[in-house]
Amino acid sequence: MYCKNEISIVNIALFILAFTIDPVVAKNPSFCDFRDFDKSEPKAIFNSTRATNRTHLMWASDVDRWEHDSKIDKVQHILQNLHDYNLSLVWEKAGILVPYYNPIHKNECRGASEFGPIGAFVKDFNSPILTPNDGEKAATAYVRKKNGSQTDENNSPRKPENNTDSSDEKARVTGTEIIASYEKEDGTISTSNLYFFATYYFNDETVTISSTSGDQGETIAFSPNSFGIEIEHAISIFEEHDVLIDVFEGNKLLKEGNSFDSRFFQRYSEDTYLKVKFTHDTEGFYFENVKKEKFAKTPIIFYSPKGRILMAKTVSLADFN
C-alpha cells in the first residue's frame, strides 16, 4: 500500500523537504571546514592521517540530535583527500565504502550519516580506515553501540529519554544520508545527495521507507528482506509506482568492483537487492505484515546514472529485530 497519510510518528513530508539539498553541497567550502563541523555536544572528533607518498586524508565524526526530530540522533562522518593521488577506502566501523572506481579526488570531501535512537552511538577509539594501497590508518568514530564492541561505554554521548509517549516507544528508525561526487560524460563533476530512512512500527508490524537518490538519474539499491519486507511485495509496490530499475542477487556486488570493494560486500552477498530510482518528488512507501529478521546491519548502495557504485553505507538493524 502506498504511504500517503498513514504516517504520524515520523513526518515524512518534513523529512523529504529537509533533504532537498542543492547538489553542489560537497563543493561548498563549509562542508570541508572541520572546525565548523560540530553543532552541539558532544564534541566532534577529527584528525588527519600521517602523510605518506601514497595517502594523506582528514577524517571527522560527530553525533548530534537531529534537528528535524528531537527523538533521533544523527551521526555524521566526513572524509577529505589531501593527497595528489585519488583515494579509495573502507571505514569499516563507520560502515563506509568509497569504491576503487569512484575515488575521492584531491581536496574533495565525501560524507555519510546514520540515524538512530538517542543513546545508540558511542565513541570508538579503534576505528581504522583501510586503503587499498597504503594499509590501515588510525581513526576514531562514533559507532552504533553493541555488546562486545571495543567502544568506550563511558563516552556514550546521549542517554535515552524517559519522557517519550507510548506511541513513539513502538517505533524504531534507521537510515543514512550520503554525499558523493562523480565525473559525468562531459568531464564535469556532479555532486549528489542520497537519503534513505526506514521506520518500523512494532504495534502494526509495518515499515515505512522514504528515500531520494537524486534527480540526475542516480539510483539506490537495498535489501528489502533485511527490513522484514517480502521481495515480491516490494517488487509489486515499486513496479506499480514506476521506480523499480533492477532486481539482482548480492553476489553481483562481488563482481561490480575490484577485490577491494568486494571485501566490503562479502557478508551481504547472499541477499536479494532492488535497485530503485527515487526523486525528490517520490513519496514514502508503506509495507504491511513485515517479519522480524535477524540481520545486524545492511548496506545502502548509491549508484551513478551509468550504474557505477558511488558510495555505500551500512545501517544498523538492531532496533528492527
Rank of each mutant, 00 (worst) to 15 (best):
E153G: 05
G187Q: 05
P157I: 05
L82K: 09
N47Q: 12
E67C: 02
M58Q: 08
T279F: 09
C32H: 02
S223A: 15
A221T: 11
F302T: 02
S316N: 14
L194G: 03
S236E: 14
S70N: 13
V207Y: 04
I16R: 14
R110Q: 12
Y201V: 00
H77W: 07
T272H: 12
G307I: 07
F115K: 07
V63Y: 10
Y100C: 03
G214W: 01
D73C: 15
W91D: 01
P103L: 04
K292C: 05
I96P: 04
S40W: 00
D134C: 01
T174R: 10
L244V: 04
I7P: 02
F121A: 15
A60I: 04
K252E: 14
N126D: 13
D168C: 00
W91A: 08
Y182K: 03
E161Y: 08
V243I: 15
D186Y: 06
K170H: 09
R50Q: 11
Y200A: 01
P103M: 11
E293A: 11
D69N: 13
P305G: 03
I129T: 07
N147V: 12
P299W: 08
R267C: 06
W66S: 11
N53P: 01
S226R: 03
K74F: 08
S40Y: 01
V143I: 15
I209R: 02
R158Y: 15
R172F: 15
G307R: 04
D38R: 01
V75L: 10
G250W: 11
N86K: 09
H77D: 10
S269R: 09
L130Y: 01
A60K: 05
P23T: 02
R110D: 03
D186T: 05
G95I: 01
V25N: 00
S30C: 00
R158I: 07
S61T: 15
G214V: 00
Q80I: 04
S259C: 06
D261C: 04
D73P: 06
S40F: 02
L89F: 09
A318E: 14
E92W: 00
V247Q: 09
K294S: 11
D215I: 07
K145I: 13
E6M: 08
F320G: 04
S113T: 10
H56D: 11
P160F: 13
S236R: 12
I16W: 00
R263K: 10
T298K: 07
A171D: 07
G214N: 02
L317G: 09
I178F: 06
I178K: 01
G119S: 11
E232W: 03
G119C: 14
N163Y: 02
N102R: 05
N86Q: 09
D281I: 06
E288H: 06
N289A: 13
E161S: 10
H233M: 10
E205P: 00
Q150A: 15
N193I: 11
V207G: 05
S262H: 02
V90A: 02
V24E: 11
D242T: 08
E177K: 05
K43T: 10
N126M: 08
I309T: 12
A139H: 02
S167H: 11
A51R: 13
Y286K: 04
K145A: 15
D319A: 14
P305L: 04
